[in-house]
Design a protein around this nucleic acid. Structure first.
Lengths: 402, 402
DNA sequence: CCACTATATTCACAGACCTAACAAACTCAG
DNA sequence: CTGAGTTTGTTAGGTCTGTGAATATAGTGG
C-alpha cells in the first residue's frame, strides 16, 4: 500500500520547477560544482536525462565542465559548474536615502556593486527612472561586460506594491511613488525585462544559505527604513495574492500603540522601527552627526555609539530588539521555517545587538517543537535586497530558456 | 520581448499540479459542472488533451457527462461532473471534548456526519485508535456504501505536530498524545491510507469558497479549543517545514502577558482563547450549565447567553474578539490573502459576535492596499476541520490515479 | 435546407523522460 | 602489468504526454 502521508519533506505546497532545464541550472548554481550523478540525486531525474540536459546547457554555453572529482573506486566524476560569464543580471534597491546597484553573473556571484546617495525625499519618479537607467548603463559599461549578455533587471523598493502595477502605498518620504509602474518604465527605457519586488521578499531570495543542513523553508527578517519579511520555499519566494506577503512591520504588537504612517496603530514598525529608534535617540540627546542625517545613516550612527560603549544607545537598540523579537516569533509561528535570517541595511550595522535578543525569544517560545528554528545574521545584509532582486531575475524562465 | 513580470496572478510560489489528470479532476470538482472547453481555459491544456484525459476519467467511472449547456450559436457544451459515488473518503476531527466524523463523496460533498462526545481528558491513545477505527467502520456501514470505495482517512487534531511522526506537543488535556503516531496506527488498524494534519490547516482546505470572484489565496482563522490558522493556495495548503505553519494562537500580542501552556507568554490563545473566555465567564459568575462542562461546550453556553442579551457574556466575547482581530490582522499581513474565513466550532457558535469586530480591524489596518481582504464566516464551521481532512485525502495522488 | 458558429474529436508528430544495455575511466589484487 | 570490479556517464529504443491541423458534431439563424 502506498502511503499518502509519505509525501514528506515538502512544505505542503511544492514549487517544483516544472522545467527540468531550469531545475538543472538551479541545482548547479546552488551547489557550486556538482557531477552529473549528484544531479540525478538532487533533481530526481534519471542519468540519461541529466546527460542530455547538461549537454544542451554546455552547447548553449551556460554550463562548463570543471575538471574531475577524485575517484571513489570507479570512474571519477566530471564536475560541472555554471559558466559565470554566460549572462548577467542587474539588481537595484531603492530606498529613500540610498540607491544600491549590483551586477550579478550567471553563477549568482556579485561582480560589481555600487551604492549611491538616494534620490532624496519625494523626488519625481520619472527623473528617478532616468537616473536609474543611466546609472545601470554606466554600471554595465564600467564592468566591461558585453551589454547584450544582460538578461534583465530586478528592482526592489520598500512599501506595499501591487505586483505588476507598482507601489500602492509608501512611507511619507516617498508619497509620489504611489501608483507609479516603475518596472514598466524601466523596461521601456532600458529595453530589458524588469521585475518589481518588495525589498524584504527580495532579500529572502538574496540570502546565501551557509548552514550545514538542507534548508528548504526559510524566511528573512528585513530591516531597512522599515521592517518587512520574506518567505522562501525551495528557492522560490512566496509573494501572496498581491505581492505583499510578509509585512511583519505592520502587525500590531501593542493594543492602543502609537499611530503608524500606514494608517493603523501599534505596528511593530511604528514602535521599534529605525525611524522610531532614531527619533528616540535624538530625544535622548544622542549625537548622530549632522542633524540632517536621516534613515539608515542615522540609525547606523546609533549602532556605532552602542558598539563603542554608549549605554543609552545600547538601551534604545535593545528595546527595539525586544520588539523585533516578537516579529521574529510571529514569523516562525506563521511560516514554520527552518531558518530565519536577519538582513537588510539596519541589521548590517546593528545585527550583533539584535541577534542574541531575537535568538533568546525564539528559543523560549519554541512551542515544544522538536526542531528549533535557527536564527542567523546575513553577512551581506547591506546588499541583500538588490542581490535578491537580481537572483529572482536570474531564476526567471527567461534567464534559462536562452 | 517577453516580459518576465507578466507571470502574474500566481502567489509567486505556484503549486501547479504536475499531474494533468489530477488537475482535471480538481477543476471539475471545484467547478461543479463544466464543459471541456471551459476546462481548456481553466487548466491551460489544449482541447485534444482535455478530450483524452476526460475520456479516460469517464472510462474509469470517475467522471460523468451531465447533459448539455445551452448553445451560444454553435454546438452546445457537453457538461461534465464528478461521479459522486465513485469513491469516498473519511475525515475525522479529534478534539478534547468531541470527535467528529464525516464521510465525503468523490465530488467533495458530505454524505454523512457523526459527532460524538470526545474520548475525555487524557485517555489512552491506543484505546482511542480502537474507538476511531470501530466508529469509522460503523459510519461506513451505516451509510450503505461499498467499503472498498473508501480511499482513505484524513485525521486532524489540535496542537503542533511533526508531519508523519505525530503530535509533538499538546494542551494540558491531551498530554498522552505527545509523540503518538496516530495516523500510522489508524492505517494499520483500518488498512487504509491515513494522513495527519493540524486542525486549522485542514479547516483551510475544508472551507467552501462562496465568493463571487476567483480566490486563489485564502486563509482560515480557526477556533476550537485553541486558535490556529491555515493558508490555502490554489487549493493546496501550506504546511511549513514541520507541518506547523499558521500557529497564530501562539504569537505574542502582549509583552509580559499571561503564561501560556505552550511555554511562552502573552500568546493570543492564552489571552483570548476559548479556555480563557470560559474561565473569565466563570469568574464573572455566569451560569454555563453543569460546572463539568468544558471546552467548546462551555464556550457555546457563553455565546448563547450573549446572543440572548446577557451583556456580561457579550462584553467578554467582544474583548476576546478584539484580540482575535489582531490575529486576523497578522494573518493578512503575513499571508496577503484575498479572503479570510472564520471557522471551527467556536466561530460556529459565536461567529456573529466576532465577525464584525474582526472585519472592522481588517478594514482599518488595510495598509493602503488597493484590494481589501474580505472576511467571512464559514457556515460549516463545526465540521470544517473534518471536512478539510477528508478533502485533503481526496486531493492526494492516491485518490486520482485509481 | 444551407451557411455559420461553437464544441469536440481524430490523427500524426514532437519532445520529455524512462529502461536497458553499453562505454569509459578509474582502483586494486595478484 | 593486467584484468576484474566499481563507479560514472552515454547511447539506443520505447512510452507517454500534449500539441497543431484538420475534421466531425450539433446547434442557430436566414
Amino acid at each position: 500500500m502506498q502511503r499518502v502521508s509519505d509525501t514528506s519533506r515538502s512544505p505542503g505546497y511544492d514549487p517544483a520547477p516544472t522545467n527540468s532545464r531550469a531545475l538543472i541550472v538551479d541545482s548547479i548554481r546552488s551547489a557550486g560544482t556538482v557531477s552529473r550523478v549528484e544531479l540525478t540525486q538532487i533533481t530526481g531525474l534519471t542519468a540519461p536525462s541529466v546527460t542530455t540536459l547538461v549537454r544542451r546547457l554546455i552547447d548553449d554555453g551556460l554550463v562548463d565542465e570543471a575538471g574531475r572529482g577524485s575517484s571513489t573506486g570507479g570512474k571519477p566524476r566530471t564536475m560541472l559548474r555554471i559558466r559565470a560569464a554566460a549572462r548577467y543580471v542587474v539588481g537595484v534597491h531603492l530606498s529613500a536615502d540610498s540607491l544600491t546597484y549590483v551586477l550579478v553573473d550567471y553563477a549568482g556571484a556579485v561582480v560589481a556593486r555600487w551604492r549611491r546617495a538616494g534620490p532624496g525625499d519625494d523626488s519625481d519618479p520619472e527623473q528617478v527612472v532616468e537616473r536609474i537607467a543611466a546609472e545601470t548603463t554606466e554600471l554595465i559599461e564600467r564592468s566591461g561586460i558585453d551589454a547584450s549578455l544582460v538578461l534583465g533587471l530586478g528592482f526592489v523598493c520598500p512599501g506595499p506594491l501591487i505586483r505588476n502595477r507598482g507601489v500602492t502605498s509608501a512611507p511619507p518620504s516617498m508619497t509620489r511613488w504611489v501608483g507609479f509602474p516603475i518596472h514598466r518604465r524601466l523596461e521601456e527605457r532600458l529595453g530589458l525585462p524588469a521585475l518589481l519586488e518588495n525589498d524584504a521578499t527580495a532579500a529572502a531570495a538574496g540570502t546565501r544559505l551557509t548552514t550545514s543542513h538542507d534548508v528548504s523553508v526559510m524566511a528573512a527578517l528585513f530591516m531597512s527604513e522599515g521592517i518587512g519579511s520574506g518567505l522562501r520555499l525551495n528557492g522560490n519566494v512566496y509573494q501572496g495574492a498581491h505581492g505583499n506577503a510578509g509585512e511583519v512591520g505592520h502587525i500590531c504588537v501593542q493594543i492602543g500603540g502609537p499611530q503608524c504612517w500606514c494608517g493603523s496603530t501599534g505596528c511593530l514598525e511604528a514602535i521599534a522601527g529605525p525611524a522610531t529608534v532614531v527619533a528616540k535617540a535624538r530625544a535622548a540627546g544622542l549625537d548622530l552627526g549632522s542633524p540632517r542625517r536621516t534613515g539608515v545613516a542615522a540609525f547606523a550612527a546609533i549602532a556605532r555609539l552602542a558598539l563603542t560603549g554608549d549605554s543609552r544607545a545600547e538601551a534604545i537598540l535593545r528595546d527595539s530588539a525586544s520588539w523585533l523579537a516578537l516579529g521574529a516569533q510571529t514569523i516562525t509561528n506563521m511560516y514554520d521555517v527552518q531558518l530565519l535570517v536577519l538582513t537588510g541595511p539596519a541589521f548590517a550595522v546593528a545585527g550583533t545587538i539584535y541577534l542574541p535578543v531575537i535568538q533568546e525569544r525564539i528559543l523560549s517560545s519554541s512551542f515544544g517543537r522538536a526542531v528549533n528554528t535557527e536564527v542567523v545574521l546575513d553577512e551581506r545584509g547591506h546588499d541583500a535586497a538588490a542581490i535578491g532582486a537580481a537572483l529572482m531575475m536570474l531564476r526567471s524562465e527567461r534567464a534559462i530558456s536562452a
